[in-house]
């Protein structure tokens, strides 16, 4: 219903195209701890689409005491920068997690989300207009920066070809309580680019 919480974590200090700079870094203990004090983390990386990249990215995790749980390789979902997003679930003692992230960065891996900040809300918007002619990737990166959001996926239809009116549904992860702010940013981007923005209805029991 528009507000399903998504359990994604990211590092407020890393850049996701101008993502949220909200205060975080203070770790809140939300996950259950095991006997050894190991906790689960999710790290989102962006990899260049070249052979060996994934293996190279995973090495620093093990080297720094992390235990890989799962790897979700979103091959079909290339970022506006042409990279492939990879989501890695791992567990490690909380005091080793910073080393894991540092290790990844030192290896030249682009870490776009790590740490404790949760996206609390997920919303979809539908954009209508000359999306393709109007630089779709610019539109998406400006939604990410202007609306403090992360584009989770995009579905585009252009029934009359890319030179005519097309529609796109964009699913976004947004920090808790900031949906209205994000939608306002998308609205103003829409009016600047001459796009119709169909927003979700927030509030009440209908959203």
């Amino acid at each position: 219903m528009g507000n399903e919480p998504v359990d994604r974590e990211r590092d407020p200090e890393t850049d996701i195209g101008g993502g949220s700079e909200s205060e975080s870094g203070t770790e809140t203990e939300t996950e259950t701890e095991t006997d050894g004090g190991v906790r689960a983390y999710t790290v989102r990386l962006e990899l260049v689409d070249e052979p060996g990249e994934l293996l190279r990215a995973l090495a620093p995790i093990a080297d720094n005491g992390g235990n890989l749980l799962s790897i979700h390789h979103e091959r079909g979902n290339i970022t506006p920068r042409g990279h492939i997003p990879v989501e890695v679930d791992l567990e490690c003692p909380p005091d080793r997690f910073d080393d894991v992230v540092t290790g990844l960065r030192e290896a030249g891996v682009n870490v776009i989300q790590a740490g404790e900040e949760h996206y609390g809300e997920e919303i979809s918007v539908v954009l209508v207009g000359d999306l393709v002619e109007n630089d779709l990737s610019d539109t998406l990166s400006r939604i990410e920066s202007g609306a403090n959001a992360a584009v989770l996926d995009l579905s585009l239809t252009a029934p009359e070809g890319t030179e005519s009116v097309s529609s796109a549904r964009v699913r976004l992860a947004i920090d808790s309580g900031r949906s209205n702010e994000a939608l306002e940013a998308i609205r103003s981007l829409g009016s600047e680019k001459g796009l119709t923005v169909v927003e979700p209805l927030l509030g009440g029991e209908s959203a």
């Binding site: 539908v126 209508v128 579905s155 239809t157 029934p159 009116v165 529609s167 796109a168 549904r169 169909v198």
Partner: peptide, 9 residues
């Protein structure tokens, strides 16, 4: 609002 927007929704 085109038909395609309703399909995406």
């Amino acid at each position: 609002v085109p038909g395609s927007a309703l399909e995406l929704a």
